[in-house]
Amino acid sequence: MDTREIAQVRRFNRVVTQAVGALDQSYLERGRPLGEARLLFEIGADGAEARALRARLGLDAGYLSRLLRSLEAQGLIEVVPGRPDARRRRASATTTGRAEIAAYDALSDRLAASLLAPLDPARRARLVAAMGEVERLLSAAAVEIAPEPPASAEAQWCLGSYFRELADRFEGGFDPAADRSAPAADLAPPNGLFILARLGGEPVGCGALKRIDDATGEIKRVWTAPPARGLGLARRILDRLEAEAGRMGFAVLRLDTNKALTEAHALYLKAGYREIGRFNDNPYAHRWFEKRLAG
């Protein structure tokens, strides 16, 4: 990696941490450091499970427990066993905690305004646009992609969301029972693979691979959740599936798609797939593609 790029990232980090007051022991002059303030914000008025907070913020379990105990000692939150699973602790803001969250919101707005105020409108617009781009790129870098059992709750959530979207977009709708091209048994080892993309511990996309024969695999169920679109996630999922296909010994990958999914057509063509004739009996497919894997 280019050492100049690394140096720029480090300079950026120093500027941002100083500008937002991350180094202050009393963040926004409310008597506690940024870590506790951020955790209180994430708990919010609706509360959150400790497990979800840990995944969302990428915190060590021990450190999260210390932060929760500190906020609880300050009377800002209550941590109680979850129901029905008591091991899944849930943190909820108290009345005092909700008032503190409101105070942080007002002060955070004031801090953001103070960063923008010295700039003229043109530079202000540039800064806001640059911040949006940095946010999107950092989010893209934070996505984790890993194998997942296709029957897991998170995998089923992704597939259910994907199928509902297909039902909305396909002419005549979509019935998962009528699409027998990718039963769950075909998407699990040794004949297949299901992968899940997570951002902040939450599922944001999926993809699958199934065996057609010893040399040929088929790509299935590539989907990205709407909030994660624009991050290049679909291409990353496709690249991961291709890498896994190579490890499984496939020389060729095939896939099908519906005529309504024009963005998918563009993705596959850009990734080096070529259009071929029909190779399956999927009732929802209108176009079929193939790619020979390098090596």
Rank of each mutant, 00 (worst) to 15 (best):
E49Q: 12
I6G: 00
R254I: 05
A285P: 11
A184I: 09
A271S: 15
C206S: 15
E78F: 12
I276D: 00
L59A: 10
R14C: 01
G31M: 06
R4N: 08
D24Q: 07
Y27T: 00
A285G: 10
E36L: 03
L231W: 13
G246S: 09
I276F: 10
E49C: 02
G44D: 06
L127M: 12
E154Y: 01
G295N: 09
A271I: 10
G160C: 05
G82N: 06
A197Y: 05
I145Q: 01
P189S: 05
I276V: 15
F41V: 11
L111D: 00
A208V: 04
R169C: 07
A61K: 09
I237K: 02
L59D: 08
Y268A: 06
A99Q: 05
V15I: 13
D85H: 02
A86I: 02
A102C: 03
L255F: 11
R51T: 08
R211S: 04
I145C: 03
R51Y: 14
E36G: 08
P283F: 03
P203Q: 14
V20Q: 02
Y63S: 08
I219L: 15
E36D: 14
D105V: 05
G205A: 15
G82R: 04
L233P: 09
G200H: 01
V79I: 15
L166Q: 14
R136W: 03
K210M: 06
L253P: 00
R83C: 02
D46C: 10
E29M: 10
A113D: 03
M248I: 07
R278A: 09
A102K: 13
P84A: 13
T96C: 14
L57Y: 02
G21R: 01
F279Q: 00
G44W: 14
I77W: 10
R66H: 13
G82M: 10
L68Q: 07
A50H: 01
I276M: 13
S108P: 00
A55R: 12
D168C: 01
L119C: 03
R198Y: 08
L187S: 13
A102P: 02
A146F: 04
A266M: 09
E29C: 08
I43M: 10
F41Y: 07
L71C: 07
R229P: 13
E290P: 04
S181R: 06
L116E: 07
E154A: 09
L40A: 07
L261S: 03
M248S: 15
E148I: 05
R164P: 00
N282G: 07
I195L: 13
P283H: 05
A188L: 02
R69T: 11
A264P: 04
V16R: 02
G201P: 00
P203R: 12
E218M: 05
P84C: 03
L137W: 08
T95C: 00
A50D: 12
L187Q: 07
G75C: 03
R83Q: 11
A103I: 14
D168N: 06
L111R: 05
S70D: 07
R4W: 06
A151Q: 10
P283M: 12
R229K: 10
L159P: 11
